[in-house]
């Protein structure tokens, strides 16, 4: 096993002054083989200063680009600097760095294009709001219906992607606003392999989630379902062309 793979951990952060330092230290301690890149998505609080103090590579977005485009910025960075693997993590401390290595090893050993860290694959005692569980279940069914593959947690932001996917994502125009289930479906239909690995996750302690409140998650679910359907229609067209 050659050890000279270049791995990049991309952590998009928006208003995470309470969590970011913990996360950076966690990653530094537990993923020694990888470089870290923090994407500061124009946070309104003190996040940028904390990142600067932590002595890591960071990108400071020129304006608020939202989660998806921040990730894409990180992937573009990986592409430019010729990384072999990118591990996406959230800055809120939900994803544990110790688990990231598991993702990377799986991606490497099983030659899987995308490895998703899943909360529900094995019951590891992750307490999850009812609403989110229902949504996740619905997407699972949708994916199984159209792609004949069981992805239990397609909404997880804890992923490891290889070079082939980095290439594709960095060129992807119209990068979706929420790159979750729709992207999973799109990648599966385009012939990429996706593998799931059970990971432990913590519950967010401080700061506010992207999906907080009542209206936002509902809107999110509607947008998500709509995008999934559009992705399916798009791919039907593509298949006929081939």
């Amino acid at each position: 096993m050659k050890k000279d793979d270049k791995v990049l951990v991309v952590i998009p952060a928006y208003n995470e002054e309470k969590n970011i330092e913990k996360v950076i230290n966690d990653v530094k301690k537990n993923i020694k083989f990888a470089d870290i890149l923090i994407i500061n998505d124009k946070s309104k609080d003190n996040t940028l200063n904390i990142i600067k103090k932590c002595d890591v590579n960071y990108v400071d977005n020129v304006f608020n680009l939202k989660y998806a485009l921040s990730i894409q910025t990180g992937i573009k960075y990986a592409k430019e600097n010729d990384y072999d693997y990118v591990i996406q993590m959230d800055a809120d401390g939900q994803h544990l760095a110790i688990e990231a290595e598991k993702l990377y090893q799986t991606a490497k050993k099983e030659k899987s294009d995308i490895v998703i860290g899943s909360r529900y694959l094995v019951d590891l005692g992750y307490p999850c709001p009812f609403f989110r569980r229902v949504g996740t279940k619905a997407f699972e069914i949708l994916i199984r219906l159209f792609c004949h593959k069981k992805i239990v947690d397609p909404l997880s932001g804890f992923q490891c992607i290889n070079k082939r996917v980095i290439d594709r994502y960095s060129k992807l125009g119209g990068y979706p606003e929420f790159p979750d289930a729709n992207l999973v479906i799109d990648m599966l239909l385009s012939g990429y392999t996706i593998k799931e690995v059970p990971t432990k996750m913590k519950v967010r302690t401080d700061g506010e989630s992207m999906h907080s409140g009542i209206i936002k998650p509902i809107k999110y679910m509607c947008v998500m379902f709509y995008t999934c359907i559009i992705v399916l229609i798009k791919n039907i067209g593509k298949r006929k062309e081939n």
Partner: peptide
């Protein structure tokens, strides 16, 4: 919007090249 997004990403990366270690 697509063009702006593309530019914002590129500019952010360029800026980080200048300031980042």
């Amino acid at each position: 919007q697509e063009k702006v997004n593309y530019l914002a990403e590129e500019v952010s990366l360029l800026k980080s090249k200048k300031t980042g270690k």
